[in-house]
Design a protein around this nucleic acid. Structure first.
Lengths: 258, 258
DNA sequence: AAGTCACTTTGACCCAGATCAAACGACAGC
DNA sequence: GCTGTCGTTTGATCTGGGTCAAAGTGACTT
């Protein structure tokens, strides 16, 4: 039951607290977690799951606006979102930045850090959140013993690569409204997979963050929302979204630009 | 010394031949390969390297224009480029496609296939090429025994994720000439790492393929090349590129757009 | 209750890059 | 050598989305 040492942090603000593992918190470790079908332990047997419980060492609360990790932080663990919502972003030297993804419950964060043993992007909570720490050293150890875990971890990383290809596609070939439609449908589908409504949800991110992710300016995102609303595809009120015509949204994607 | 079964292929054209492992081909397995410092076996000991030799089962020649694999093909192996040059691309239902990457000697191909046990993109040789087959089942097996190999494989996948983030950045925030400058500098650096000139090289891909990768139209790519040439940054003659002022190219990237 | 602040919407205008079109160059096959 | 094909360059024009600006909308503070 290893607890990851907190990284030393010059400024003492904006950082999250590690919750040491107690009998109480163990109750929500993987074998009892209702996210297990979406998360790392997918497909493990009862006994294997028991061993993964010993891997997931501690949980950590991250308040809205706080960083889970920052680019440059030493890489020690990957994180599974237990509750809440995160964004990851990359920062260029010249100040430009881009949101590379949004993560919700059951999704993993931090795999970018393995390559150079340091995180290469920032992870910020968009609402009060809680994550499970998965110390990487131990994950390696356990996954060399449990083949299913190794296989599944590889799949998770591979899925991340495939997801990134999808974003590249979106950024490289789609027009503004297609990008937003794809984004909404993707969110909708992920909320559904978690048992929430696929038709009605609350955006945790600002128009600017959506724009950054989609390679658009916030005004363009706002205009696209308004246009979708006028066309009767969705109902928007600030961050509250209701999808009225999912089929039409999907058709927007399959339309040839020429 | 396993040989991967060739996938059944309806059309018998455009597919590559598997070369069974012979005593002769063994001479160029990993332990004797001058690419080992760029490829999968990086950082392995002598004895570990010997075991990896038994993993890399066969090589396969792929002629220019042929597919190494296609989206939808069952995933059985990843590939290391031995010689030559590849592109990978994704195809959307509506016919739009995008190049997601270019791969040269020492680089790995096919990790996108792990996630759903089928390839999710196409890999096409841009010149006559040869790849080493790394059967995935055996890679899993061996990497659970050799910790260094496991670690290194994770790093390779993680590096792919980080690379994709770089492309997302490029597509989401950079202007046409910045994208092309970034592309040229990246190629230059990769040629250098392989012992070729970083200042002078031959593009294996068309303007259209560059454009697809960079989210631009081929005309825009061509115009950017011409503009770089007028500005004395490079000399272009068809696919032959000479970088005259790498510093200026780098400065193009660090310039604030506002 | 009023003020502040962060986010969003909407309008007017502009420009980078797309589109359309035509000419040009390189190379393979006959 | 000629010819067809494919890729590239260059010009002219158009437009989607960026930019700039101002007003609107909550939500939180005092």
């Amino acid at each position: 039951m290893t607890q990851i040492k907190r990284q030393p942090n010059p400024k003492n603000c904006g950082e999250a607290k590690v919750i040491p593992l107690t009998l109480n918190s163990l109750k929500v470790a993987c074998s009892q977690c209702n996210l297990q079908e979406l998360c790392l332990p997918l497909g493990l047997s009862e006994t294997e799951l028991g061993r993964v419980d010993t891997l997931v060492g501690a949980r950590r609360k991250v308040k809205r606006g706080q960083h889970l990790y920052r680019a440059g932080d030493p890489f020690e663990a990957i994180y599974a979102v237990k509750t809440g919502f995160f964004k990851t972003d990359v920062l260029l030297e010249d100040g430009r930045d881009q949101v590379t993804g949004f993560q919700m419950a059951g999704e993993l964060l931090g795999m970018d850090g393995i390559s150079v043993e340091a995180h290469t992007c920032n992870a910020v909570a968009l609402e009060d959140s809680e994550v499970c720490l998965i110390p990487y050293e131990q994950l390696e150890e356990l996954s060399s013993e449990i083949r299913t875990l190794q296989r599944h971890f590889h799949k998770v990383m591979s899925r991340e690569i495939v997801r990134d290809h999808g974003v590249m596609m979106l950024l490289g070939t789609m027009r503004a409204e297609e990008r937003l439609a794809a984004f909404l449908l993707n969110l909708s589908q992920r909320f559904m997979a978690r048992g929430y409504s696929s038709a009605e949800f609350h955006l945790r991110m600002t128009r600017e963050e959506i724009g950054s992710y989609l390679g658009l300016k916030l005004e363009t995102v706002s205009r696209a929302f308004s246009h979708f609303q006028e066309a009767g595809l969705i109902a928007v009120q600030q961050k509250h979204i209701r999808i009225l015509d999912a089929t039409a949204l999907k058709q927007l994607l399959n339309r040839q630009p020429i």
